[in-house]
Design a protein around this nucleic acid. Structure first.
Length: 598
DNA sequence: CTTTCTGACGCT
DNA sequence: TAGCGTCAG
């Protein structure tokens, strides 16, 4: 009973020509994006078969992008450079830039940002779906366009040669003519087109302009799918590439789906798609229509079942989020087989490299997007384990050593060494992958926070502030004096890059909060002895030194000196009285780092 | 002896 | 929520 009612309701919705969404959704997909970025950089490569490889020592590196010329020879992603050369001897293999001995994709991220910026000029609703794809909601722009243009004078003569309508077989000249005719004839708009198709044709005109603008302003071609929801737009975009666009009207859904393989549909390219295929013994999306909602839900669960039920009818409710910047920033590296990390030293080295890249990118992100990540997750894959382990920790400031140490602690915890002797620290099983990811972004305060946080987050300038002898007093009650000093120092530094003095003047309270954050007092609940357990040996030595140095045996002074703070540089507990020395160490380290060539 | 390196999101 | 799993390119 309920089942048949739902079926009935769904059929009612389907009477509406656009599947009920009432929206115009476009997917813009850059053509072999990394290749285009490299060709823009090296124009001599234009018109030559080309692929992008990461690394090249082993088998000529891994291919991560292939242009359409090289695809003709069977070159594809995931082949090795060597294999590509065999299939296409004339291919040009461009290596991804390397920094700190790892692949550096920042060129492509920057180019992606250029594209997103252009897209922002056309509609306010854009979802960055990946580095080279974005969904656009063109519903409003299309309405505006229709309202501000008479249909008769509409750009029917607009060059829509690169526009296709899904369901028309381009290899079949008759059908192709039909499609082109409908688009190019002036009267089609009034008579021979459903309202659904009209808005999509108008959208196609806009998308044509968008694509031209991308080409003119940033020099990249792209393909696009034009439909009523994300699923259809994505499917359509893949139908004609490169440098073309495809309309997929609701009226063509059944025709198209009757031959569209399940795995070609978004979210069905993996295990679920295979399950559906196996359980129902079907190959194409359209065949799903033969199953009732009830059956689909019994076989695949309530949510997935109803999702499939609607999906095969061209309906998809996935929301378009309005976001053109990422929610997380991460970097990682594989250490396969022979290169697996077997020593603490090796792990620490790579944590250092990854952390440095991450901090560099986080700082750029803060400048561009006035936001700050609040947490880091470290993923690592121990040899022999099926899946990687993830551990998350707080990120109070953008600081390489803090990330390295917290990550190291996380890895070391679940991964015991064979021997305790540091220099011979060796694991029975190696580490095959490490990944660092920063997330939980919060917006920086209005205006003044930005420059302040920029200053505070910089490794070098951070050392400049905290390497002074004033830091421990922040905890002991000299905040005002010390903060004033810090503030003056900051202004000296900030003014060289930030001319707005007024913003700095507002920042006393804020800066107090942030600088205090640098050294977080550790909550104590146990005795002195229990507090010493972690670094007992080192601290016992320290204790003897203090007792020898101090004239009195006043325990309170000693206790006070044993109050610890969390060093913002390395995340470790540091006793107050060695804090100065400790920060000098970091300062020296930062100078040393700066003198190194990356 | 090896698809790399990303990123989003769902499930529990 | 944190951590794991899936999907995509």
């Amino acid at each position: 009973m309920i089942e048949s009612m739902i079926d009935l309701l769904t059929r009612v919705v389907l009477i509406m020509e656009d599947g009920g969404s009432g929206k115009v959704v476009v997917l813009v997909d850059m053509d072999c994006f990394y290749v285009q970025v490299e060709k823009r950089l090296h124009p001599e490569l234009k018109d030559k078969p080309c692929a992008i490889v990461q690394y090249n020592k082993w088998q000529g590196g891994s291919i991560i992008a292939v242009d359409y010329e090289a695809r003709k020879y069977g070159v594809k992603r995931s082949l090795k450079g060597k294999e590509a050369k065999e299939k296409c001897p004339g291919i040009h293999l461009v290596q991804v830039p390397e920094k700190r001995r790892k692949a550096d994709l920042s060129n492509y991220r920057k180019a992606s940002g250029e594209v997103m910026k252009v897209l922002s000029g056309f509609t306010s609703v854009i979802e960055r779906a990946s580095i080279d794809e974005a969904f656009l909601d063109l519903t409003e722009p299309v309405k505006d366009y229709i309202n501000s243009n008479s249909f008769d004078s509409l750009e029917f003569h607009a060059d829509l040669k690169s526009t296709h309508v899904a369901g028309c077989n381009d290899d079949d000249d008759t059908h192709k003519d039909d499609c082109d005719l409908r688009i190019s004839r002036g009267d089609w708009f009034k008579s021979s087109c459903s309202s659904d198709e009209r808005v999509l044709i108008v959208a196609a005109i806009l998308v044509q302009r968008i694509r031209e603008t991308i080409l003119n302003e940033v020099g990249f071609t792209c393909s696009a799918g034009i439909s009523h929801n994300k699923m259809l737009a994505k499917l359509a975009a893949g139908m004609h590439k490169p440098n073309q666009q495809t309309i997929l009207p609701q009226s063509q859904v059944d025709v198209v789906f009757s031959t569209t393989l399940l795995k070609k549909v978004r979210h069905l390219g993996g295990k679920l798609g295979e399950q559906v295929q196996d359980k129902l013994k079907i190959e194409c999306v359209g065949q799903l229509q033969e199953y009732s909602l009830k059956v689909l839900q019994e076989k695949f669960g309530l949510k997935t079942g109803s999702w499939l039920y609607e999906l095969c009818r061209g309906i998809c409710h996935e929301k378009i989020s309005n976001r053109i910047i990422t929610k997380s920033i991460g970097c990682g590296k594989n250490f396969p087989g022979p290169s697996k990390l077997k020593t603490a030293k090796a792990v620490k080295y790579w944590l250092e490299q990854l952390s440095r890249e991450l901090v560099e990118r986080l700082e750029e992100d803060m400048t561009e997007n006035t936001r700050q990540a609040q947490s880091i997750t470290v993923h690592f894959l121990p040899e022999g384990q099926a899946s990687s382990v993830a551990r998350t920790f707080a990120l109070p400031s953008y600081n390489t050593s803090l990330i390295v140490n917290n990550s190291w602690n996380a890895i070391n915890k679940g991964h015991k060494p064979v021997t305790n002797e540091e220099s011979h620290l060796t694991w029975t099983t190696g580490i095959l992958n490490i990944h660092l990811s920063a997330g939980k972004f919060v917006q920086c305060g209005k205006g003044h926070m930005k420059s302040l946080l920029q200053l505070m987050s910089s490794d070098q300038e951070c050392s400049f502030v905290s390497a002074s002898s004033s830091h421990s007093s922040i905890i002991t009650g000299k905040e005002v004096t010390q903060m004033t000093l810090c503030k003056e120092e900051r202004e000296d530094a900030v003014l060289t890059t930030t001319p707005t003095i007024t913003e700095q003047d507002q920042s006393l309270e804020t800066s107090s909060m942030n600088i205090t954050k640098f050294f977080t007092p550790i909550k104590r609940k146990g005795s002195l002895e229990t507090q010493l357990d972690r670094n007992a040996k080192r601290r016992e030595v320290v204790l003897e030194e203090i007792k020898g140095t101090l004239e009195s045996d006043d325990d309170t002074i000693i206790d006070n000196q044993f109050e610890a703070v969390l060093c913002s540089e390395c995340g470790e507990e540091v006793l107050k009285f060695v804090l100065e020395e400790h920060m000098d160490y970091h300062f020296a380290l930062s100078l040393d780092k700066d003198s190194q060539i990356n």
